[in-house]
Nucleic acid binder design. Structure first.
Length: 201
DNA sequence: CGGCCGATCAGCT
DNA sequence: GCTGATCGGCCGA
């Protein structure tokens, strides 16, 4: 039976969590009890204040990124480019700005609903293949920022089936969409399930 | 205040 | 491969 991930499970560094999250299921329950879910197939680690690509670089702490400093298992949802949301899982320890960006899902439940959110003619592979796409598909927005993923009934994660993560080969490479951030630009902090058609690239 | 920029995406060339 | 959309957040004056 699907098991919700615990606080302890999240309490690790971002690189470790980025790999552990592959194969786990992200679940979103709408106000009308509609259940939407997908298997995590691509992640990126944002490893702390020293990471120049992170919103928390240099220890920057503002109302926008405050949830990055919360306890492990907290959601960090931010709005960007004037129109998109992205969803992160906070890890590490309280007051350490460490998180994993969820970049792509393989949709499992609620594909018809996802199409009403994303577009009727989108194929399965395009529904959740990108950090903003999956937020649009699952209706994840700023009101879910700071939610406790170990307690919330609207947004949470469940353990993957043991073999999914172990059988699949995992790819590793640079993160996507970064500006001029020096050595952090090419740091291999993105992971994905190889040969999975639902990854963002 | 004003100005710049972004952990993106869709649509076009 | 390139570009416009679109606007909240942040920083400097």
């Amino acid at each position: 039976m699907a098991k919700r991930l615990t606080r302890r499970w999240y309490a690790t560094d971002a690189e470790t969590l980025a790999i552990k999250l592959l194969g786990c299921t992200l679940v979103r329950v709408l106000d009308d009890a509609t259940r939407l879910s997908g298997r995590i197939v691509e992640t990126e680690a944002y490893i702390g204040a020293e990471d120049r690509a992170s919103h928390a670089f240099g220890g920057r702490r503002t109302p926008r990124n405050e949830s990055m400093y919360a306890v492990p298992g907290t959601a960090y949802v931010y709005f960007t480019y004037g129109m998109h949301h992205c969803f992160n899982v906070v890890c590490g320890k309280r007051d350490e700005p460490v998180a994993v960006l969820i970049r792509a899902l393989e949709p499992i439940e609620g594909l018809a609903h996802m199409r009403t959110h994303r577009g009727e003619n989108i194929r399965d592979e395009g529904l959740c293949s990108g950090p903003a796409r999956l937020c649009q598909a699952l209706r994840i927005h700023r009101s879910l920022d700071r939610v406790d993923l170990t307690r919330s009934s609207s947004l949470f994660l469940e353990a993957g089936d043991a073999d999914a993560a172990s059988i699949a080969e995992v790819g590793r490479g640079p993160r996507i969409g970064l500006g001029e951030v020096g050595r952090w630009r090419n740091a291999p902090l993105r992971w994905w399930i190889k040969a999975n058609p639902h990854v963002s690239r």
